[in-house]
């Protein structure tokens, strides 16, 4: 697995039903583009996170296909509606087959 991959997610702990909430995610990852060469002139193979998804109680909020032009330590900010209390699940898919996940609970009143 790529080294030191660590997801960070910001979701409010509480919201009112039907509220729009803003979510921010950041994950530490080199996002090696495949365009670079090492000091010996050999191409460094591509190794990126190629997909990011966010679901709430199993239903999709956002599903992003990512290319090497996404910066190192990929960041996303987006808005979600929360109909009821539940759990956000965030998933990042690495080229090398690894999958990183993070969950956040939210209480809806």
């Amino acid at each position: 697995m790529a080294e030191n991959v660590k997801p960070r997610v910001r979701v409010p702990r509480e919201a009112a039903a039907g509220d729009t909430i803003t979510i921010k995610t950041l994950i530490s990852h080199n996002m090696e583009s495949g365009q670079r060469k090492d000091s010996d002139g050999n191409p460094i193979p591509r190794s990126i996170i190629n997909r990011f998804t966010c679901t709430f109680n199993g239903e999709t909020v956002l599903d992003v296909m990512m290319e090497p032009a996404i910066s190192t330590n990929p960041f996303f900010e987006f808005d979600a509606v929360v109909p009821e209390s539940g759990t956000f699940e965030f998933t990042w898919y690495d080229d090398d087959g690894d999958v990183y996940t993070e969950t956040k609970d939210i209480t809806v009143s």
């Binding site: 729009t20 909430i21 679901t55 709430f56 239903e59 999709t60 909020v61 956002l62 599903d63 992003v64 296909m65 990512m66 290319e67 032009a69 996404i70 987006f78 808005d79 979600a80 509606v81 929360v82 109909p83």
Partner: peptide
């Protein structure tokens, strides 16, 4: 990137 929005995207 391509952002695909689900039903819960506000």
């Amino acid at each position: 990137a391509t952002f695909n929005f689900g039903p819960l995207a506000a």
